[in-house]
Nucleic acid binder design. Structure first.
Lengths: 147, 147
DNA sequence: CAAATTACGGACATTTTTGTCCTTAATTAT
DNA sequence: ATAATTAAGGACAAAAATGTCCGTAATTTG
C-alpha cells in the first residue's frame, strides 16, 4: 500500500517511541537491525523525519542517536505519513480518477467511500504512543526479519 | 494505492466492458484517450491482459481491437488485480511486516483486520460487468483527463 | 495480390524508488 | 587537544516503474 520508505518510517518511529527517551537514545544500527531495514537507506529516512516535520529528534556523537519527545509521541500515526509525503495515498480515488467525487463518482466510489474514511481514521486516531505501548505490553510486535 | 499500470488496467477493462462487444471492438487509441492513459504504455498493459490470465481478447487488422467476452465480464474486479500481479497489495501487513499475523500482530493489525477484508471483499464481489453497467446507466464515470 | 489497419513484441529512454558509500560535522570521553 | 563515536549530507548505483518507438504479424478490404 505504501512505499517501502514509508513502511520503514512507520516501523522506525514506533520502535523509537517504544525503546528510547531523551536519556536513552537509539543508534541507527540498532534501529535498522530491529525493524529489518537496510542501514544506509534507513539513515536517509530518519533524516527526513528529523528535519522537515520533525517527528523525531537526534544528536550526534558518542551516546548520540535518535529519540522522540513525549510531545511527538502524542502525534497521530498519520503525521508520519504526512512527513513521508504519502498521506495522499489514502485520499486518492481507487481507480486513479482525477475528478472522482460524490457528484461524478467512479464505479467503485460508493463502495470505497465506506472503507476509505475508516482507513484514514485509523491513522488519525492511533497515536505513535498508543502503538508503542501495545508493543511495550507485549501485545504486538514491530521487529522484522529482512526479506 | 495501486501502481499506475494497475489503475490503467482497471479503467481500461471497465471501459471495454461497457463499450465493446465481439461485434464492436475498441481500438487502443480510443481506449487510451477515454481513460486518459498514455497510448503506448496502455498497449503494454492491454497485452498483459490478453495474454496470461486472458481477461480481455483482441483481434488484429481493420475493425480489430479489444473486446471482452460475456464470460469474462462476470469475473470479479479482483481478477484484474491478479492479472496485474497487484492483489498482494491487499494481503500485505500495513506496516510491511513479513510475519504479521493474528498470533504475532503488528500494532495496527487488530485495527486493520477490520478494514482489509472489506477492501478485498469489494474487489471480490464487484464484477467487471456490474461496474460497466453502473457507467452505462449514467450513475458513474470511468473517463479521465490526463494529469 | 496489394494496401491499409490494427495489435504484438522487442528495444530503448526516463523517472522514481531503493539502496550504498564516503566525507564532514557535531559531540563526548580520555 | 585528540580520538572515538555518531548523525548529516552529498554523490553515486541499481532496480523498478513508467513511458516511447519501431518493425513485425495478422487480418480485412479493395
Amino acid at each position: 500500500m505504501f512505499l517501502k520508505a514509508t513502511e520503514y518510517a512507520l516501523r522506525a518511529v514506533i520502535f523509537i517511541a517504544q525503546k528510547s527517551s531523551v536519556e536513552k537514545k537509539l543508534g541507527l544500527k540498532e534501529i535498522a537491525k530491529a525493524i529489518g531495514s537496510p542501514q544506509p537507506f534507513t539513515a536517509k529516512i530518519l533524516q527526513q523525519l528529523t528535519s522537515g516535520k520533525r517527528i523525531i529528534s537526534s544528536t550526534r556523537g558518542p551516546n548520540g542517536g535518535f529519540y522522540i519527545s513525549e510531545r511527538s509521541k502524542m502525534l497521530p500515526v498519520y503525521a508520519i505519513l504526512q512527513a513521508m509525503g504519502e498521506d495522499v495515498i489514502l485520499k486518492k480515488c481507487v481507480l486513479g480518477l482525477n475528478l472522482c467525487s460524490e457528484t461524478r463518482p467512479c464505479p467503485l466510489h460508493h463502495q470505497y467511500k465506506l472503507i476509505k474514511p475508516r482507513l484514514i481514521k485509523m491513522f488519525e486516531t492511533k497515536t505513535i504512543k498508543s502503538l508503542a505501548d501495545e508493543i511495550q505490553s507485549g501485545n504486538s510486535y514491530i521487529t522484522n526479519k529482512k526479506s
